[in-house]
Structures are given as C-alpha cells and as structure tokens.
Amino acid sequence: MIKPLSVRQFHGFLLTLALSLPLLVQAAEPLPSWNDGPSKKSIIEFVQAVTDQGSKDFVRPEERIAVFDNDGTLWSEQPLYFEFLFALEEVKRTAAQHPEWKTTQPFKAVLEDDHQALAATGMEGLMKIFAATHSGMTTEAFDDYAKTWLSQARHPKTGKPYTEMIFQPMLEILDYLRSQDFKTYIVSGGETGFMRAFAEKVYGVPPEQVIGTTFVTTFDYKDGKASILRTPQLAHNDDGPGKPVSIEAVIGRRPILAFGNSDGDLQMLQWTAAGTGKRFMGLVHHTDAKREWAYDRQSQVGRLDKALDEANKRGWTVVDMAAEWRRIYPFDATTGQVQ
C-alpha cells in the first residue's frame, strides 16, 4: 500500500519540481520542425555561442537584437504580397465613395480585375493604391479595417486565413531566441500599421518592435478627442537600404542576427554582418513547389538574386525549405524529409 505524502513531503516534491522545470525546458530540443541539417545546426550553435557566459562570443542580453523580414520570411508572399491583396479589396470596398475611380487608373483596372492594365501602371500605380487605401483615416480606423480583412479573407490556394499562412519553423526560431533573452523585431517593406494589426497575436512581436514602411501622420484634437491621422504622403520606404536606416533610427543597436528571403533584405543583412563579434545572417530560400512555392532569381514577388549571390560568397546561412523544413505551416502535418 502506498502511503500518502505528508505536507512536508508534498512541499518538498513541489520544490524539486519547480527547480527541475528550467532544466526540462533547456533539455527540450529546439526547432522541432527543422530537419537536422546545416541551417538548424548553424542557428543553434550561434545562439549557444552568444549566450554562454564562458564563451569568447558571449553577447550581453541587452545587445541580443534579432531582426526579421516579414513577407516571404515569416509568412508566404505568393501569388502576391498579402498586403497588396488587402489594398485591392479596400479599393473595391470603398469604391462607392469614389465614383471617379471608374474611369481613373489604376483604380479602374482594380475594379475591372484587369491585371494587365494594373501591371502597366507600375510602381506609380501601386503607390496610388496604397495611398488611397492606407490614409485619410485615423490610426484606430485603419487598424480596424486591417483586422476585419485579416479575419475574413482567405488565401486563394489554401483557403486558409492569411494569418495561418505563417511558417512554423520561423515561429520556432522566434520563440527559441526569446527564450534566450533575444529581443525580436520585424523589419519589413510592409506598412507598419498593417503589420501591427496581427504581429503580436501571430508572432508574439509587440507593436513597438514592428518596423515598416510609414506614411506621414498628424495629431488631431477636436471636441476633447485626440487622434492620429494618416496622410497619403510617404514618410519612409522600409525596403532595401531603407531597412538599415530604420533599424538605426528606431532600435539604435546593430542586430547580431538577421533573417530575410529576398534582395530587399540584402542591405539589412549587410548591415548586420558589418558589426563586430559573432553574427548570424540567414535567408529563407523558397525551394518547395509541392508544399509552398519554388522561386528565386526570376520571380516578380520576393526575388532572390543578388542576396543569394552575396550569401554564397559570404558563407551566410541559406535555408533550403524543401530539404530542411519538416513542416511549412502550423496546420501542416509533418511531411518534409525526416533525418
């Protein structure tokens, strides 16, 4: 017959359990959705080196800054950037308020689903669409519009909400880094307000750690109510060389780890690599046509060309999605190569 524990014994058991929990967490294998391979090995070895106080590569917790691109790095970006799809839907939603759009490009092309005419408007047309759909309202109103769309819209290929088209292996990196006292930031060409609508809930990245393209805003105070108004004037394009500029302006520390997936992330990776001490630069290479998409040098969305050459030249980590990820999305079964 098993004797019941005394109060003292029970308290002792709880104390032992509490003391052992950190060891159990530490013993758990990090990055379970990654196959054992060069990328997983390099990530873990880097984190261990910079967090071991006895290592020559030790980095103080306050300097453990990690930056991540969003589109194509933390979630998918095909067939079009998800925020662009949001903007197109916003044009259609608000078209009744703008009868002139029926005869004015690029809005006419959007309303008629004329993709060829839309493409012909180029970057100028794109900026007109973003200005029209991302401004002329308060920050709170835009946040509501973005959250409503994200809760209702579905990806054309998978039928899943866009906020489920996130990469499980990258979520694990974010969690792993934070468990080791890293501070994780999103540094993306996406618009800051749009990403803040979901980043904390989906990635665990709070709004103050989301850096993106921004529009000029103004303060308004009427009838005792204060608000921030979004104007159509572009304040900062957070792509390419704009990324290290915003990192310096907002964070004020050079990252020791940076992850991207395209040429738009090259300068962010170069800026990270240029610092002293041990550094980690990584690229997600979309090589899995079966479970996601396969694209790089010739893609019109998320082109990876110059950054890939630089990574190969400098010995940066290039993640082969097809070979190194056991699963792509959280809703996936573990179908990748298991080693």
Rank of each mutant, 00 (worst) to 15 (best):
L174C: 03
P232G: 08
K225M: 12
G189E: 01
V216D: 13
V205K: 07
V187R: 01
Q233L: 14
V245S: 09
S188L: 00
D238N: 15
E248I: 04
L171M: 15
F167I: 04
D238I: 00
E191C: 02
L177Q: 04
V202M: 09
T217Y: 10
Y203D: 06
I186W: 13
V187W: 03
I247W: 09
G189Q: 08
P169T: 07
V216F: 02
S179T: 10
G224C: 04
D181N: 15
G212N: 07
Q233V: 14
E191L: 03
M195P: 06
R196V: 07
S188F: 08
F167A: 03
R230E: 04
T192P: 09
I247A: 11
G242S: 09
P206W: 02
K183D: 11
E200N: 05
G224I: 00
D239W: 12
I166W: 03
P169V: 06
F194G: 15
T192W: 02
Y203C: 00
R178E: 12
P169C: 07
G193T: 14
R230S: 06
I186A: 07
L174H: 13
Y185S: 13
G189Y: 13
T214E: 09
D223H: 12
A199L: 08
G224H: 08
R196F: 13
F194S: 06
Y176M: 15
F198D: 03
F198C: 07
F194E: 05
I186N: 04
S227I: 07
T231Q: 11
S246H: 05
A249C: 08
G224N: 12
N237H: 09
V187F: 05
G190Y: 06
A199S: 06
A226D: 03
S179I: 04
G193C: 00
Y185G: 10
L177R: 02
T184F: 02
F182L: 11
P207Q: 12
P232H: 01
I228N: 00
Y203F: 15
F219N: 14
I186V: 09
G189H: 03
G204E: 01
T184E: 05
F198G: 05
M165P: 05
D239T: 06
F194A: 04
V245T: 11
E172Y: 10
D223W: 14
D223F: 05
Y221D: 14
I211W: 02
K225H: 12
Y176W: 14
I173C: 01
P207T: 11
K201W: 00
G240L: 09
D175N: 05
Q168N: 09
G242V: 08
T184K: 03
T192M: 13
Q233E: 13
R178G: 11
P206Q: 00
V216L: 11
L177G: 00
S227Q: 05
